[in-house]
């Protein structure tokens, strides 16, 4: 009996450890005190009002959105084509090639960031945005290839064969049989890629410059000097944003599919 109670107690403490910082940030964003307190002292929206007046944060939000949309589009298109090719073609070294495509997940992001930073400087590319898009596309591609690839493995081969027997051309099979079947997986990877890109910090920190600074890097440079509740306000908005995306996903497809677990 005692082990069971202590197990439950430990689980509760672990959940407090995991979720505590998030609760404190959300609560702290409404505090009247000049630093984050918990429970919040009084109730005010002044930190949100202050945030809305910061044009640099708004610009960074737009930069992050543009970057995430561009990287997501590139990763989804390239990744879906690659996943289709890997599922259909059967060539020597295919598994090695697949592992190579997944490598940005395994390589330390700080190293990939530094490598891109140096290479872009070598090529004297004037736009920081281009480097950021390349970096973010590389980081999000493995998720697309894995999600779409898993859907293609589960795809019933006889569907495409039936279409072929009935005389459908390859292009028609692709767009009228295969694509509708993997469309949910593509949508899931779009949202995943978007979240991963929007949240990326380590690669971005090397590649931001005077013309672009993503929102996470803006927050990073801000909290190096000050920890006031305005950051709690922007953090709360980001938490809300992430949860809305995932709740939307969950509503549409169910959580098991989203996290690729259970099977």
């Amino acid at each position: 009996m005692i082990p069971r109670i202590s197990l439950s107690l430990w689980t509760t403490l672990t959940l407090i450890f995991l979720l505590g910082p998030l609760v404190i940030i959300v609560g702290g964003s409404f505090t009247e005190a000049p630093h984050v307190t918990f429970p919040p002292e009084g109730f005010t929206l002044k930190w949100y009002a202050q945030l809305m007046e910061r044009e640099d944060f708004l610009e960074s939000f737009i930069d992050s959105m543009v970057l995430a949309v561009a990287a997501t589009a590139a990763a989804t298109i390239l990744g879906t084509i690659a996943a289709l090719a890997l599922a259909r073609e059967n060539f020597k070294g295919r598994e090695a090639f697949r592992a190579f495509l997944m490598s940005p997940l395994i390589l330390p992001t700080v190293v990939t960031g530094v490598a891109l930073f140096q290479f872009i400087r070598l090529l004297e590319i004037p736009s920081n945005m281009l480097g950021l898009i390349i970096g973010h596309t590389l980081i999000t591609l493995p998720y697309v290839i894995r999600t779409v690839g898993a859907a293609l493995v589960g795809l019933d081969k006889s569907l495409a064969e039936a279409a072929e027997v009935l005389g459908a051309k390859p292009a028609r099979i692709l767009f009228q049989v295969v694509m509708p079947a993997i469309a949910p997986a593509i949508l899931v990877s779009v949202i995943f890629a978007f979240i991963v890109s929007f949240d990326q910090v380590t690669i971005s920190i090397f590649l931001t410059g005077p013309d672009v600074m993503t929102l996470p890097i803006r927050i990073y440079t801000y909290i190096e000097f000050a920890i006031d509740p305005m950051i709690a306000a922007v953090s709360t908005l980001l938490i809300l944003f992430a949860y809305l995306l995932v709740v939307g996903l969950e509503r549409a497809f169910g959580l098991d599919k989203v996290f690729g677990k259970k099977g």
Binding site: T11, L15, L18, L19, G20, P21, L22, I24, I25, G28, H35, V36, I195, D199, V201, P216, I219, Y220, I223, I227, I231, A232, S235, L238, I239, A242, Y243, V246, L255, F259, K261
Partner: peptide, 23 residues
């Protein structure tokens, strides 16, 4: 329980670090 354990993964790394600084 799984959702609770996984949910911090959705929160930006800088935001989570900020949470610990605030604590």
């Amino acid at each position: 329980l799984l959702a609770a354990v996984l949910s911090p993964l959705l929160i930006n790394l800088v935001v989570r670090t900020y949470g610990w600084l605030a604590i």
